[in-house]
């Protein structure tokens, strides 16, 4: 039996991207919420809740980008120029919010500047990621192993909608994270914000999901063709069940269940995307086997990845586990 290395790597890259989206999603969400919570002490508390983990979270983005280059160079070479503007804008947003973690504590006079850098960078990065996702879903023209579209193709009503949807979705993740990890004023604000972010996210998921099949006939077949509809029908059913758990948790003032259910909602959306895309990596034009580097390249990196990735994951899980519990404004680690 031979290993289907492109398939294995597609799974690993998908895992890295999913890990990035749900992990950085909640800490970007905390940044998005910064303007909605007043008081430096409260903001200290919010930032402290994600400070120990944000950089590890963002490293999954490097792993996704670097991994794509390593194992699916053709896809990397097509997608990056196609999404040129949103990718660059996302990177600039991430730089702003990344340095804010460090610099906000180095100055008192300029602290408000870094508050704005943190919030603005988070919102811009989230919106650009959503736009990039929408542009990818709506399809990328390819000719001769290269992107063959124009420089503004990424900007469409659909991609703007997905951009807004992701900002709102990250807001839901961020607010439910804060519900789980903070107390008193910040937690009460987080409940207020989650109360509208949750329904808004669900409505936007509904609109995007309803729109997607009309973008491309292949998506329609994936979702409505017989008999695979039997395989995909659990996804929308689970979305409904998860939505119910989120709303119920918020109404009953539960602390952990809204966040965990919101995470699961993102996982379901990601699975939905996977159903639409597979087996393509660039929708409708390049499959994972077309884009894959030769097997010896995939194997060479897989050796290292299969040793290091489990250690990294175990370590990440362990850190989150022992770091559970409420965060005070000044009690991050003493």
């Amino acid at each position: 039996m031979t290993l289907d290395l492109p398939f294995i790597w597609a799974g690993l890259i998908a895992f890295a991207v999913l890990a990035y989206v749900i992990l950085d999603g909640f800490d970007l969400g905390v940044g998005i919420l910064f303007p909605f919570v007043k008081g430096e002490r409260n903001r200290d508390e919010m930032m402290n809740s994600v400070a120990p983990v944000w950089d590890g979270n963002e490293t999954w983005l490097v792993l996704g980008g670097g991994g794509l280059f390593a194992v699916f160079p053709l896809a990397y070479a097509i997608i990056m120029p196609a999404l040129y503007a949103p990718i660059i804008i996302m990177l600039l947003g991430l730089i702003f919010r990344g340095v804010a973690f460090e610099f906000r504590w180095k100055t008192r006079r300029g602290q408000f500047l870094w508050d704005w850098a943190f919030a603005g960078g988070s919102i811009i990065a989230a919106f650009a990621q959503g736009v990039a996702l929408g542009a990818l879903v709506q399809g990328i023209p390819v000719a001769n192993r290269a992107y063959a579209g124009g420089w503004w193709d990424w900007l469409t009503p659909f991609s703007v909608l997905t951009g807004i949807a992701l900002v709102i979705g990250y807001t839901l993740l961020g607010s439910t994270w804060l519900i789980w990890r903070t107390e008193n004023h910040v937690q009460r604000r987080a409940y207020d914000i989650a109360a509208w972010a949750a329904p808004a996210t669900l409505i936007l998921i509904g609109i995007v999901s309803a729109w997607t099949p009309f973008l491309n006939v292949i998506y329609q077949q994936r979702w409505f063709g017989w008999p695979q509809i039997l395989l995909v029908i659990p996804v929308p059913l689970l979305v409904m069940l998860t939505s119910y758990i989120i709303i119920k948790g918020l109404i009953e003032r539960r602390e952990a269940s809204p966040f965990l259910a919101s995470l699961f909602l993102f996982v379901l959306c990601f699975v939905g995307l996977g159903i639409s895309f597979y087996p393509h990596i660039v929708p409708n034009s390049v499959t994972i086997w077309d884009a894959a580097a030769p097997d010896n390249s995939l194997l060479f990196l897989l050796v290292g990845a299969s040793v290091l990735l489990p250690i990294i994951i175990a370590y990440t899980v362990y850190s989150y586990w022992v770091f559970r519990g409420k965060v005070g404004a000044k009690s991050a680690y003493h």
Partner: peptide
Amino acid sequence: SVFSDKVGPVLGPLMGYEVLSA
């Protein structure tokens, strides 16, 4: 992007190791 497509199979895994070790 053209560089990435052409050298990816050779240099990509080395960069992958860099990312993993970092």
